[in-house]
Design a protein around this nucleic acid. Structure first.
Ligand code: SF4
Ligand code: SF4
Lengths: 152, 152
DNA sequence: TTCATTATGGATCGTTAATATCCATAATAG
DNA sequence: CTATTATGGATATTAACGATCCATAATGAA
C-alpha cells in the first residue's frame, strides 16, 4: 500500500510548472533534469496528465508543458487519481455464491466490512483534495519570508 | 494504491474468530472453507497474525487459532499493518545531492510535499484505528435486532 | 519548403511484488 | 504411537512497476 514513484514525479513536475509564468512552456528536458529522472519515463506521466486535463502540451520547437488551470485548483487527489488510477482502496474477493459468513449483508452496498473501508477511502480523499499545488508554493513562500532564521 | 487480498482475508478470518467463544480453537480448514480460499495461502496470513500477537495458535490435534486479545482491541489498522507491512504511503525518490527544486527545505523532515503526504497517512491511520473487529460485529448485531424489515 | 525541435504512442524488457501451491517438520491430543 | 494441525522453506505463476527505444506527428524557425 504505497503510491508509486510516478505520483511523486507528477507532483514535483507540477510544482515546477506552477513556478513558471502562464504561457511559458517547459520542455521535458528541463523537467527531467530538475527531477533527475529519465525523459522517456517522465514524458509518459506528463502525457497522462495532459489526457486528464491537468496540463496542456504543445509539440514542436519551443513547445512543452504548462498547467491547464491555476495551481490552486489542482489538488493532490486530482494528481494521484490520474497517475494511480481510480481503483478503490479495498476490493471484495468473493462472488455472489461464496458468502464468507452470515453476519454480513451482501445486498447492494450494505456490507459492514466494506463500509469501513469505503469510509477510510473517503477520509483519505477528503484530505487529499483539500491540499493543492498552490498550497505547497504558498507554504514555501511563507517559510521563505520568515527571514533566514531557519538554520544557524 | 490498493490493499492486497491478504488484508481482506485477514479481516474476514478475524471476524470469523471473533464470533467464537474464547478458548474455542478454529482450524485452518474451517477458516479457509468459510472464506473460500486455499488452506495453504490463508495459513501464511494466519502465521503472520500470530507473529504479531493478533491471534494465538496451537498445533496438534484439535488445535487451531483464537484471538490473542478481545475483538474491541483489534483495530483495522493493526491488521493492515501486519499484513501490508509498515511502509509509508509516500516514499521520496531523490537522494542528498539531487534536490529537484529550490523551494523545498530538504533539511530533516521539513519538506512541504512530504508533509502533506504524511498528513494524509496520519488521517487515514487515525480513521482505521478507530474501527475494530468488534465494531463490525456490534453493527451487525444492531442491524439484526432491527427486526427483519431489511428486504420485503 | 526544409529542418531542427518536441510531444506522443506503441512496443519491449527487466525487476519486483502479489498470489498460490507443495512439502518436510514440529507439536500435541487422544 | 498415531492422527491431526500449524509452521516455514522452497518454488512457480502472474501482474504491476519502472524504464528504455523508436517511429510518428506537430510546430516554430531558417
Ligand atoms: S467486505 Fe463484505 S462484501 Fe466484501 S468480501 Fe467481505 S463480506 Fe463480502
Ligand atoms: S517530497 Fe520533498 S523531500 Fe521528498 S523527494 Fe520531494 S522534494 Fe524531496
Amino acid at each position: 500500500m504505497q503510491y508509486t514513484k510516478s505520483t511523486g514525479y507528477a507532483l514535483h513536475a507540477l510544482i515546477h510548472l506552477a513556478q513558471k509564468d502562464s504561457g511559458q512552456y517547459v520542455g521535458i528536458k528541463e523537467l527531467s533534469a530538475a527531477l533527475v529522472v529519465s525523459e522517456s519515463y517522465l514524458s509518459k506521466i506528463m502525457s497522462k496528465l495532459r489526457q486528464d486535463g491537468i496540463v496542456r502540451a504543445v509539440t514542436g520547437a519551443s513547445g512543452g508543458y504548462e498547467l491547464a488551470r491555476s495551481a490552486d485548483r489542482i489538488t493532490f487527489l486530482d494528481v494521484i487519481q490520474v497517475v494511480e488510477g481510480r481503483q478503490h482502496l479495498y476490493e471484495c474477493f468473493h462472488g455472489e455464491e461464496s458468502t464468507p459468513d452470515a453476519i454480513y449483508d451482501m445486498d447492494s452496498e450494505e456490507c459492514l466490512v466494506k463500509k469501513v473501508m469505503i469510509g477510510a477511502e473517503m477520509h483519505l480523499h477528503s484530505y487529499l483534495e483539500q491540499h493543492t499545488i498552490q498550497g505547497v508554493l504558498d507554504a514555501a513562500a511563507q517559510r521563505g519570508s520568515r527571514a533566514g532564521n531557519k538554520k544557524a
